[in-house]
Amino acid sequence: MSVPVPLDPPRRLVELEVDGRPVRVPEGSTILEACRSEGIETPTLCFLDTLTPVNVCRVCVVEVEGSRVLAPACSRRVEPGMKVRTDSDRVRTSRRMVLELLASSVDLSLASPDVGRWMRDYGAEPERYGPPAPAAEAGERDARRAGHHEEPVDGLAATVAQPVKVDNELYVRDYSRCILCYKCVEACGVEAQNTFAIAVAGRGFDARISTEFAVPLTESACVYCGNCIGVCPTGALMFKSEHDLRRQGNWDESRQRVVETICPYCGVGCHVELHVQDDEIVKVTSPLDHDITSGHLCIKGRFGYQFTQRRAPVGASPDPGGPPEHAG
């Protein structure tokens, strides 16, 4: 192993206090980094190490002495002498409420197991907002008018539940699971792919991830790199192969193994992880901490694996799982 060569000038250390303990971290670090350096667990949902923090989920908030409101740990930079509390009543209440509000309106059942653990640890009770309102019809939430909503009725709690959008052969969008963390928008835009096929549309509770005029992905700018799937924390964006297996009740991670390999297509040498169940590749990921990909791939690395499992004899009808024509 070679020794890393420092390219940046050495950073000064900043001293601050976290939960009464003195902490020293490099200048420019965030409170989250300071907490991690001390082994203090901080829940995060919209944060990802490879993306610029958007600090919208607010589950990482901490109390900074002298500040009127709580501060997002993921983006607030440390300052010398800062006094941070991560476990005060105010912090615990806000974290519990954020988890509760999300869980009462969004399907978090495929989010990381950490989320369920945080909900237990903080005592979140999403049921106390009442029974969920019926799911929206397909397209209904896409057509909501900014600044207008129907009056709440019958003591039901509004949710973002709606049918899954399946408009191509490669991946599906299940916005009933979307917590609006903005990660997919970031990955589709300047942070990875620079394609800008999706953005946040609408506002308030009707804000949603959308293409222009909510057109299907096949009519949008999408290039099927799947980097949005790679960053989605709640399973709202999912390989169609995984979606289909789950619907059939055949998705079984205990029967899966992960084969690490190098993408065979070009000379970049992206590190890919093939998730294999019953000798079929069911999804492809790349490690976030890989220095070539940072977790991102292109359509070939992400979806171009069908040839490895094309077992039909030459001349037989093509595998229906192959990439659609427009993706070529």
């Binding site: 919208v56 806000s94 509000l101 509004a158 308030g204 509770f205």
Partner: peptide
């Protein structure tokens, strides 16, 4: 109606 929808406390809290 007027919440921008960006952060969870306001987006869901106002509802």
């Amino acid at each position: 109606d007027e919440s921008c929808g960006q952060c969870v406390p306001c987006r869901v809290g106002t509802v």
